[in-house]
């Protein structure tokens, strides 16, 4: 039987006087390794609290401004806010854009309703960072174009650290569509911070310009080589909606060259785990058999996502310092 009161006390004791260093979370670059560890510690307690209704954010509003469709991230933030006692409202849709209202004006309108946190998803790289200057609310980037998706990286980091203890000296192999992946954008930054060795396996057409130099990763065209002795296999789907199909010959050939099969999985370390940011495309980026095996952490990631988002909503909404902002 879970002792809610005890866990809440533990939560507050674990936080102590810790304050997250930023008012908005738009990039993993804003956090240090120490911040990540604090976030993980708190998230573990939130995870134990499961769906318990708490009053940590009672009386606060959280706006979910998603300008792109989403299943897991949107519902994850929605539930996270509600479990913390906040009033969560879907505060964004594509209608404002269709009516010709600028996103910068939309954010000011949302701001006037005084939310503590606004969670933004957009097809535009950089938009959360840009609009964050125009609202007193804390902005959380829930995915901006092909740039970053920091809460995804944090939930992935938590999943890996819980599994491996530390990521120092561990090998994480990321396979798939790097060029269009905001998940990669945040994950590679986080893994570098946590000391992991990052390998990337992708065809040249699905890499970014200067991937190696920019992020200090090892790039492999050959997925088997990249998987050898890996501790984590992290697969990314082909982002057809962002034009990736123009970067490969056929899905058939891509899948043959880069899909994770049982044989390929066997090349990794004995206790290696499989992760996927979702949505999974069975038998394209990962063989259907592997999705449900014990080494798969795909659903743990989702569970950790809820805990990570609760942590960040709480830390940002209760930061002990007023955020400065301007009007357009």
């Amino acid at each position: 039987m879970m002792d809610k009161k005890k866990l809440l006390t533990q939560l507050k004791a674990t936080r102590g006087d810790y304050q997250i260093p930023c008012h908005d979370l738009v990039s993993i670059d804003q956090l240090t390794e120490n911040d990540c560890e604090h976030i993980f510690s708190l998230a573990r307690i939130f995870r134990t609290l499961k769906t318990e209704k708490l009053d940590l954010l009672k009386g606060s509003s959280v706006g979910i401004a998603f300008f792109e469709s989403s299943t897991r991230t949107k519902s994850s933030f929605d539930w996270a806010g509600k479990h913390l006692g906040a009033d969560v409202v879907g505060a964004g849709s594509s209608t404002a854009e269709k009516k010709g209202e600028s996103m910068f004006d939309v954010i000011q309108v949302i701001d006037a309703m005084q939310p503590k946190v606004v969670v933004i998803r957009t097809r535009y790289s950089g938009l959360p960072e840009q609009v964050s200057q125009y609202t007193s609310a804390s902005v959380i980037n829930a995915g901006d174009g092909i740039h970053e998706h920091p809460t995804q990286a944090l939930l992935d980091g938590l999943t890996m650290v819980d599994e491996l203890g530390t990521l120092r000296g561990k090998i994480v192999t990321i396979v798939g569509d790097i060029s269009h992946s905001r998940v990669f954008g945040s994950l590679v930054r986080l893994l570098n911070k946590l000391g992991a060795t990052v390998r990337v396996a992708a065809p040249e057409t699905l890499l970014l310009e200067k991937t190696e130099e920019t992020f200090g990763v090892q790039v492999f065209y050959n997925v088997e080589e990249a998987l050898k002795d890996a501790d984590v296999i992290y697969t990314l789907r082909i982002q057809g909606e962002r034009g990736s199909y123009g970067n490969i010959s056929t899905i058939r050939e891509y899948s043959k060259a880069y899909g994770i099969s049982a044989e390929r999985f066997a090349l990794a370390k004995q206790n290696a785990i499989i992760m996927h940011a979702g949505p999974i495309q069975r038998d394209i980026d990962i063989h259907h058999v592997l999705v449900g095996i014990p080494e798969s952490r795909i659903l743990h990631q989702v569970e950790n996502g809820l805990a990570i988002r609760k942590t960040l909503l709480w830390l940002l909404a209760t930061k002990n310092e007023e955020k400065k902002f301007k009007r357009i």
Binding site: S125, G126, D144, H147, L208, E209, K210, F215
Partner: peptide, 11 residues
């Protein structure tokens, strides 16, 4: 197109 475009996620 270079390290900054990669970092910023801008084509």
């Amino acid at each position: 197109e270079g390290q900054w475009s990669t970092r910023l996620g801008l084509p």
